[in-house]
Simulated assay, not measured.
Amino acid sequence: MVEVKLGAATATRIEESYEPNFEARRFFPDWNADVVRQHHDWLVPNHYDEASGFLKLSIHSWLLKVGGKNILIDTCVGNHKPRAYRPMWNMMETPYLERLATAGVKPDQIDMVMCTHLHVDHVGWNTRLDNGRWVPTFKNAKYVFSREDYEFYQKVDSDPEKGPANGGSFRDSVLPVVEAGLAQMVSGAATLDEHLKVEPAPGHTPGTIAIKFEADGEKALFCGDILHHALQVYHPEWNSFACLDQDNARKSRRAALEHCAGSGALLMPCHFGAPFTCHIDHKGGGFAPRFSGNF
């Protein structure tokens, strides 16, 4: 279990899965063998599985403890969710809640859930199955959703030719939260408290948000899918197959990297391989990740 100190706060990685899960050349249209040769010393084995040609992407949440509050950032895929279109995520059974308990927090002790966007692998544990119904997992929490993302996927979901949105996750992992009155919609830039701000970072989805954190002079940026993989630090022009707005995705990615390189904020992604976080340095006309610990 990875725990990161951020001033008086801590951020603990709550793992759902960490395995080779997407074919690299399909995930990144710009993927090429030269990149593997150039970055082989750090890329293998924690970020790329050479034998299969698959990226090794983690799927995890960050449990942020600050000021007596427990905040969960992005909630992975979830258990018992029908995802036939993505077999590795279909009807999962993982000890995610047990891992959360090991970090010292039970579901009823979560004060806030923040979803950087509303894709299937960032909303799943928002709900759990209870006697055949999807109910909020964290019943005492406010769930922070981007209004832009919510309205976009609500429209997709109601279109019989396009829905259900996000493989069904909008219906089983987002709507039950809204119907329970637990959603807090944010639009544009917003200050949530003395430690947390959200800013629009559109591109991957229309309403993707960057979550900026500061405590005791320590800064972090929870980036969701603004960056999926550490190679995008070197290649911020690389988009994944899942980025809806290619141009804005590149702009938001570069803005996130500039923020981290300029402010010293620790980059806190949801899919990077070990050691799962990094600082960002300017290098030439671009950027480079600076990892700490063993990886």
Rank of each mutant, 00 (worst) to 15 (best):
F27S: 06
F27K: 09
F27N: 00
F27A: 05
F27I: 09
F28P: 01
F28Q: 01
F28G: 03
F28C: 00
P29R: 07
P29G: 07
P29L: 02
P29V: 07
D30H: 10
D30L: 09
D30Y: 10
W31G: 02
W31K: 06
W31P: 02
N32D: 13
N32H: 15
N32F: 12
N32E: 08
N32P: 09
A33Q: 15
A33S: 15
A33E: 15
A33P: 07
D34Q: 06
D34R: 15
D34N: 15
D34L: 11
D34Y: 07
V35E: 12
V35C: 10
V35P: 04
V35R: 15
V36W: 01
V36T: 11
V36G: 13
V36F: 04
V36H: 07
R37H: 09
R37F: 08
R37K: 15
R37P: 09
R37Q: 13
Q38N: 14
Q38A: 08
Q38F: 04
Q38S: 14
Q38H: 12
Q38T: 13
H40G: 13
H40P: 05
D41H: 02
W42M: 01
W42F: 09
W42C: 00
L43D: 00
L43M: 00
L43V: 02
L43R: 02
V44K: 09
V44C: 08
V44Y: 10
P45L: 04
P45H: 14
P45F: 07
P45D: 11
P45Y: 08
N46I: 06
N46C: 14
N46D: 03
N46L: 10
N46K: 14
N46A: 11
N46P: 03
H47Y: 10
H47W: 14
H47I: 03
H47T: 08
H47V: 00
Y48V: 07
Y48S: 09
Y48L: 02
D49V: 04
D49Q: 05
D49S: 04
E50H: 15
E50Q: 11
E50T: 12
A51W: 11
A51N: 10
A51Q: 12
A51K: 14
S52P: 15
G53I: 03
G53C: 07
G53F: 07
G53Y: 04
G53H: 06
F54H: 13
F54L: 01
L55Q: 06
L55C: 04
K56A: 11
K56F: 07
K56P: 11
L57E: 02
L57Y: 08
L57M: 11
L57A: 12
L57C: 07
L57G: 14
S58G: 13
S58A: 12
S58E: 05
H60D: 03
H60E: 01
H60S: 12
H60P: 09
H60F: 13
H60V: 03
H60G: 10
S61H: 04
S61Y: 06
S61I: 05
S61M: 07
W62G: 01
W62F: 11
